[in-house]
Structure formats: C-alpha cells, structure tokens
Nucleic acid binder design. Structure first.
Lengths: 244, 244
DNA sequence: GACGTTAAAAAATACCATTCATCATCTGTG
DNA sequence: CACAGATGATGAATGGTATTTTTTAACGTC
C-alpha cells in the first residue's frame, strides 16, 4: 500500500563516512544530555537528519552506537595526552601528571566519563573490547611509572604497581562521583596535589619533607656527612622539593 | 466482558507483610541473576506467586523495588559488622578490619554490590536517599579511624581523612571490578593486607621497617650517635613495628 | 534509458513497565 | 445468616521504545 500522503518521500543520499559521523555527533549529544537509558534512537535520528532505521544500517544496536561514541572520545583524549606525558620527569611529577590529566578529563567531560564508568566498564563483554585495551594502555602508564620509580630506588619496592594504579584511579573515581552526579564542583589541580601527595608518601622511601621526621633526617644527614667526609664514602641525598 | 475461560480465577489473600517479603525475596533473586535491566517484573511476580499488577500495590515502580531490596541487604550487613568493629584497637587493625569486611561483602554478594555501585549510587536522587545515609555511616567509620589515629599521634596530620576514605573504598572497588564482572576471583584476606599496608605506610609518621631506607637510617643513626656522643645531644628513635 | 543494486524511509513488530477495569474475598452490620 | 461495602488481587489493556521488515527512491552500469 502506498503512503497516505501524496507527497513523494524525500531521500537524501550521502557518503557513508558523512552519515556515520553525523549519527555519531548526534548520538554523542543525546547520550551526554540524557544518559544511555533516556537517550532515544528517535531523537538521535532526528538530530542526525535521518530516520531511525538508517542508524541500524551502520550500528548493530543502541549499545554499539554508545561504544563507538565513547571510543572516539577516548582515542582523541589519548592522542592529546601522550606526547605531553613523555616530557615529564621524576615519579612525583609523573604521578601528578597522570592524576591531573585524568581529573581534567572528568572535569571537562563529566557525562562521557560517566558513560564510560557506569555503562561501558561494567558490561560483561568489556574485557576483550577495544575500549578495554585503550583504558588498559591509559592506566598502564602509572604502572610503568611505579616500576621505574622502584627500579630507580625512588619508591618502596614492596609497593605493588598494579595496586597503586587501583589506588589512584579508584580514589579519583570515588572522589568525583558527586560531581558526576551533578552535585558541586572540584578543582583538578588542588585535588591532584592532594591525591599525589597522599599516594606518594606511601611510596617514597623514608619520610616526606615537612614532616616532623624531617629535622631528624636533616640532622642525621648532616652528622653523617661530617663523619663520612673523613672516610671518602658519598652520603645519600634526599630528593629535592617538587614544583607546584 | 467476562474472561474467555470458564474457570473462575483463583485469588489468594495474604497479610501484606508476607506479600511484601515474598515479592522482595523473589525480586532479590531475579535482580541478582539478571541484573536490573534484564530483570522482568513478570518473572518476579511469577516467583513471588503473584501477578504483575500486585507488585505495584506495594512498590511504586521497578526502581523502588530495587532500592528496597538493596536497602534490606545493606541494613542486615551493617548490623552484623557493627559490634565486631567496636572491639578492634589500633589504626592498622581498624583499617584492616574495615577493608577486610568490605571485601568480604563484595566477595559474598557480588551481584548485590554491583547493583549498589552501578544502579543505585549513580542515580541523581541518591544523595538524600536512605541508602546514601547508610553508606555514609558505613564509610564514615574509616574517617573516624583516621581522625583518631592523627589525634593519637599515630598517623600523619597532613593526611585528609576523607581523602583516605576515598582512597580505600575507591581502590577496593577498582580492584574488584573484574570479579564483579564475573572474571576470576580474589582472596579478601590477602587483598586487605596489601591495601591496608599500602595506605597505612602513606599515613604513618616516619618510614616503615624492612624498607631499603632502613639500612640508610641505621647507618645515619649510628653515625649520629657516634658524633653526638661527643656533644651530649640525645638521638631520635624510629617507631617500633606494627602487627601483621 | 531500462535494470539491477543499494541507501533511505516508513511502517510494522516485539517487548516490557505500568495502569486499569473487573472480580473475588473479607468484614462488619442488621 | 444475608448482604453491602471495602479491599486486595487479577488479567487484560496501554504506551513507550528498540529493533526488524517492507517499501520506495536514487545511483551506477551497460
């Protein structure tokens, strides 16, 4: 049976890349505004200038569309971070960098972060997905930092690198949940300092500067220096203070 | 219009408490087996021996039913923990206890934990809910432990108690996600030791025993002792080791 | 410039949470 | 004991929404 209205239906053919990017842009908007469950395919189709059925030409279902959207965002993020990170030296600075950039991403894109945490990661097929690999690479930088720090004698050898990773990323997530729910705000720089210090003090050999122990160490080092000066053995130096 | 089948429909009246607990028990089963989205009201009704509509006499909607189920589980859990915790002494042991019992709950009831983390906590109305208050009380024990530890001179005064809370609970969650997704297993006791040690070393005044720094300290202390022996100034002692 | 092929549109379907009209059972009252 | 609300339970209806299928338009090719 022909359509009721006499008007011929409009068909607008476009190259598939264009269609896909239109749909993904619209989907990103809607997912960000409404969250996964309340996002309607109809709404996405409307904003992308297509009809519902067309979305299913390119994406198997709503969830695959979500995954592609988040993947795209995540890949972009990784590209931006990678080269900057390569320039950072010293375990405190490296940890601080990772924590800070992660917090900044959450602060800039709370809705997408939330989709990643709440919808993507808990899925049973997450392990084995491309996003799992991306995220793995992303968090693994911290594992490498800790390993390098231990090898360099900067960090406690008993500290499990993967546990440190979970400590840091878990802490960040827990502390930003209220923000992700839309309650209040936070300062990434300030929070990054606090987290890095707390974790690093758990990792650093000996005590941290500014602790009551400092004066003791200083006194002991001075004493040792005087003593060792007479035997020719070099004395250990505490790391210098870090930049803010 | 009367029902097609001639058989009169069976009606089974029960006291409301019984109905409610039947429905909640069935709902718990189904939510645990299927997760929130894939749990069907029809299935819950069937197992509870009622019809779909009856569920809506007692619960406004599917989500409220979920909340009630998780609430019930959480309250039970709190009751069991509370008195045991009161007997634990010392910051290391107290943190260890909190970490261990939390890990044990996750290990025993992964599906319910997951519902709490994934479905309940991210909801926009979570703050203000009863579960929010329960969870607040639950995690606040750790804040109190840290505060007390600082007051007693056991823990670093710079450590923010609430940040330590997020560090610990965030770390636990991150580290148990794979398990919650149904991948692999973990040993609560072992993991509790690892987490507690890592966090505690970040909190303790001074350095811990057994670190490579120990020999340095020992050497320095010995050097200082020799040096100070000639001036009459007393040398500082490092704190004694903590229980395992 | 017909014709097969493919993209897009539109309608149809299927699945569920939620609501509703109807009926059964209970309780109290004369 | 009969009867009239009142209340609880039922099963069917509704509505919203992802997904599938059918229909139609545009494109490329010979």
């Amino acid at each position: 049976m022909p359509p009721r209205s006499a008007a011929k239906r409009q068909v607008n053919r476009l190259p598939p890349e264009r269609r896909i990017s239109d749909i993904m842009a619209a989907a990103k908007e809607v997912f960000v505004e409404k969250g996964y469950n309340d996002a309607l395919i109809t709404d996405i189709a409307l904003r992308a200038g297509v009809v519902e059925g067309s979305i299913y030409r390119f994406f198997a279902n709503k969830r695959e569309l979500l995954v592609k959207v988040v993947e795209h965002w995540f890949e972009e993020m990784l590209r931006d971070d990678a080269e900057q990170f390569a320039a950072v030296r010293g375990s405190w600075n490296q940890i601080r960098f990772i924590v800070y950039t992660h917090l900044t991403s959450i602060h800039r894109d709370p809705a997408l972060s939330r989709l990643m945490f709440q919808e993507i990661r808990p899925a049973p097929d997450y392990r084995g997905s491309h996003l799992f690999e991306l995220n793995r690479a992303y968090t693994h930088r911290l594992v490498d930092v800790v390993k390098a720090g231990i090898a360099a004698g900067e960090l406690r050898p008993e500290a499990s690198p993967s546990l440190v990773r979970d400590l840091v990323f878990g802490c960040i997530e827990h502390r930003t949940w209220a923000f992700l729910r839309g309650e209040g705000n936070f300062d990434p720089a300030e929070m990054a300092d606090a987290i890095t210090n707390l974790v690093h003090h758990g990792l650093m050999l000996g005590s941290e500067p500014n602790s009551p122990m400092e004066s003791v160490i200083t006194r002991l080092e001075a004493a040792a220096a005087r003593l060792e000066a007479t035997t020719g053995i070099a004395s250990a130096k505490t790391p210098s203070s870090f930049p803010r």
